[in-house]
């Protein structure tokens, strides 16, 4: 059985046993079959970068667990605006809470926080690097739909150069023996070699949506990460370069699904929302039980 020691920092560090354990725990939370945690336990939600789904689902998950919650939603609302360092802010919040959830625009900030905090750290997105809890939500949603998560065919249509969600998804797929993984993106938005070199399976890349195979099980879509481009000109050169419309959805097999970690910009046509393939809001909703499971597991070990 896998064991979380320092928290959840990278999808690469979550082995299959741990993932399965968290999925089983999430199932139990969905059924209401888990007792709340000790009310004296607490979590700090340290969001140095804007967030809607991740913050709200962590907050809701913490409340459902019966945890005391302290939170910040932007570095502009904290003493970092006065010049306090990231390290000092993490230390301070670690003094208040039993668990710290961190989102930051800096790559590697969660790993650094885990080295100085003394408390378990959950990476809720660190710059362009990783978003491991999102990848758990993705795979949980897939498992929930198909009754399994192994041996499926994936097409990932995204800005894989800048997306932390797809980095963690690609890492997480190491645990699930995918039948095939097709990556569709403009050439300049292909995943970095530092990511693909860590994958235990082959990826096939293409620039066109024609690269979505006829037998696709999971079409995973993610927006262009506009805020992470070097400049407007670079962004404009790829803006609108992929768009999933109802025609693409209709060509997919009957039982296949479309996921998007959201927010949605223009990568996914709203006409798809009413189809059975649209699972992105189910995926968003699964953020609560998955994050309940993660926090419960970490805090249970603490006691």
């Amino acid at each position: 059985m896998g064991v979380i020691v320092a928290g959840v920092i990278s999808a690469l560090e979550l082995d299959r046993a741990m993932v399965d354990k968290l999925f089983s725990l999430s199932d139990k939370f969905k059924r209401g079959a888990v007792k709340p945690l000790d009310r004296s336990l607490s979590v700090a939600l340290a969001f140095f970068e804007p967030s809607t789904r991740t913050f709200s689902s962590f907050e809701m998950a913490a409340m459902k667990l019966g945890l005391s919650v302290t939170s910040m939603r932007s570095d502009k609302d904290s003493s970092m605006a006065k010049g306090e360092t990231f390290a000092d802010t993490v230390r301070m919040l670690s003094g208040y809470a039993d668990l710290v959830v961190i989102r930051s625009r800096f790559d590697g900030s969660a790993r650094f926080a885990s080295e100085i905090s003394g408390k378990a750290i959950i990476n809720a997105g660190d710059g362009q690097n990783e978003h491991p809890t999102q990848s758990l939500i993705d795979m949980y949603t897939i498992r929930e739909h198909f009754g399994k998560a192994d041996n499926l065919t994936y097409a990932i249509v995204a800005d894989l150069r800048h997306s932390r969600a797809t980095n963690s998804l690609l890492y997480m797929l190491n645990n699930f023996r995918p039948k095939a993984v097709h990556i569709i993106s403009p050439r300049q938005l292909k995943p970095l070699e530092q990511v693909t070199s860590r994958l235990k399976y082959e990826c096939e890349w293409s620039e066109s949506l024609a690269g979505v195979p006829g037998d696709v099980d999971v079409l995973y879509v993610n927006r262009l990460q506009k805020e992470r481009f070097q400049d407007e000109m670079e962004y404009n050169s790829v803006k609108g370069s992929y768009h999933i419309d109802i025609g693409v959805a209709e060509r997919m097999p009957d039982d296949s699904i479309i996921l998007d970690p959201l927010p949605r910009v223009d990568e996914l046509d709203r006409a798809i929302d009413g189809t059975d393939k649209a699972k992105y809001f189910v995926q968003a909703a699964n953020g609560v039980p998955i994050r309940q499971a993660i926090m419960y597991d970490l805090l249970s070990k603490r006691r």
């Binding site: 990231f86 790559d107 362009q128």
Partner: peptide
């Protein structure tokens, strides 16, 4: 964007993943 360039206490740490030719990976941002 690496934390080691954005916090005065975050010192750099690289793992040597290849010695010939030398290749290093940042332990924080990869």
């Amino acid at each position: 964007r690496c934390i080691t360039n954005n916090d005065p206490e975050a010192h750099t740490k690289f793992r040597v993943i290849s010695k010939d030719p030398i290749k290093l990976v940042c332990a924080y941002c990869n």
